[in-house]
């Protein structure tokens, strides 16, 4: 019933920099099923954005090197696809929206011109029809005065409106997969709530699969079905959001949840000591071990593998059994 649309296997990515080789992704395994929202969470430098951008091959090479792994879309490896075919997929079958919508819109054209261009290109329709589709897709994302919006330039819109336009643009080509890279991070919470509810409706109404990249566990709790937590280039835990957020098995997501100040209840915040490792010289073994209160000798020698602790709930930790009796 649930079809695996997108599958990332053993993805390993390196960046060549002046300071050395950044081991950005080590072994990333993810799958996105049709009609689900998968949250990809983690802190700065964990590789969540790199993972999402590598799907559409948006990372510049050099300095990027994909040194291992595959990204399968309907079973076809996107990493080996010729560039022309890739162009059809970008914005066609797989669409992407970013954190700062202003930079993805061309400031010298009106919203209408840009939106209709994209639609005409990907849907192979004439301008008039493109206009009809454009209006419909703007209404779809909650912009009721679509005609007015179409005649405006990007700078004349608010941040929330621009992000809606970007979503409309992404949707107008009826993609099967939407990749949203921190789509609400630059927005106020009230606007964030609206954008998230749009994304949720997209899934429900259009059956779209969404890969939602975010650093905000609250966002995940609110809109996602499943979640994958990344740390320093590895997926350390993934599964249903209720499993991962209610009963996390890995010490890192546990620590994260305990360090979030909540407006609903006050308790002592427990922080994770230290900070994210430098990925030029990452720690040996489990990359979380220097910050982990439970680490033992094995943790700095061996990389833990992602194993299925409960049906559909995966964790990569040597001690998950001991920690979760």
């Amino acid at each position: 019933m649930r079809e695996k649309i997108l599958e990332i296997n053993h993805l390993q990515i390196r960046f060549d920099t002046e300071d050395g080789v950044v081991k950005a992704l080590e072994d990333v395994n993810l799958e996105l099923y049709s009609g689900e929202i998968l949250g990809l969470v983690g802190e700065t430098g964990c590789g969540k954005s790199v993972t999402s951008q590598s799907v559409l091959r948006l990372l510049p090479t050099p300095p990027t090197r994909i040194t291992n792994g595959s990204i399968l879309f309907h079973g076809k490896n996107l990493l080996e696809m010729p560039e022309e075919k890739m162009n059809d997929i970008r914005g066609g079958k797989i669409a992407m929206i970013f954190q700062e919508p202003m930079t993805s819109l061309n400031p010298v054209f009106t919203i209408g011109e840009q939106l209709e261009d994209v639609i005409a290109l990907h849907r192979k329709v004439d301008r008039k029809e493109a206009n009809v589709i454009a209006v419909k897709s703007l209404v779809d994302v909650g912009l009721d005065d679509a005609e007015v919006i179409l005649s405006k330039y990007p700078h004349e819109l608010s941040g929330g409106q621009r992000q809606r336009v970007m979503i409309a643009m992404a949707l107008s080509c009826q993609p099967e997969v939407l990749i949203a890279d921190e789509p609400t991070t630059a927005l106020d919470v009230s606007i964030q709530a609206q954008i998230l509810s749009i994304i949720k409706h997209l899934k429900q109404d259009h059956g779209m699969a969404v890969l939602l990249v975010t650093h905000n566990l609250g966002v995940v709790a609110q809109v996602c079905d499943r979640v994958a937590v990344m740390y320093a280039g590895y997926v350390v835990e993934k599964g249903d959001k209720f499993d991962v957020l209610k009963t996390p098995l890995h010490p890192y997501p546990r620590g994260l949840l305990e360090s979030i100040p909540r407006s609903r209840k006050v308790r002592e915040l427990r922080s994770i000591p230290g900070s994210v490792p430098n990925l030029i010289n990452p720690p040996e073994g489990c990359r979380f071990h220097p910050r982990c209160p439970f680490s033992t000798g094995v943790c700095d020698r061996e990389v833990p593998v992602l194993e299925e602790a409960a049906p559909g709930h995966f964790v990569a930790c040597h001690h998950w059994r001991r920690l979760n009796p």
């Binding site: 909650g142 912009l143 009721d144 608010s158 929330g160 409106q161 809606r164 919470v189 009230s190 606007i191 964030q192 709530a193 609206q194 998230l196 509810s197 749009i198 949720k200 409706h201 905000n216 566990l217 609250g218 966002v219 995940v220 709790a221 609110q222 809109v223 959001k241 209720f242 957020l245 209610k246 949840l257 979030i260 909540r262 407006s263 609903r264």
Partner: peptide, 28 residues
Amino acid sequence: RFLMRAIPDPDPEVSTKELEISYTERGS
């Protein structure tokens, strides 16, 4: 009150219920 509803809580049981914020943008 609106702000408090809009901020997503990391507890999925709390959060999923609350995302019934107006879907269209009136404050533009």
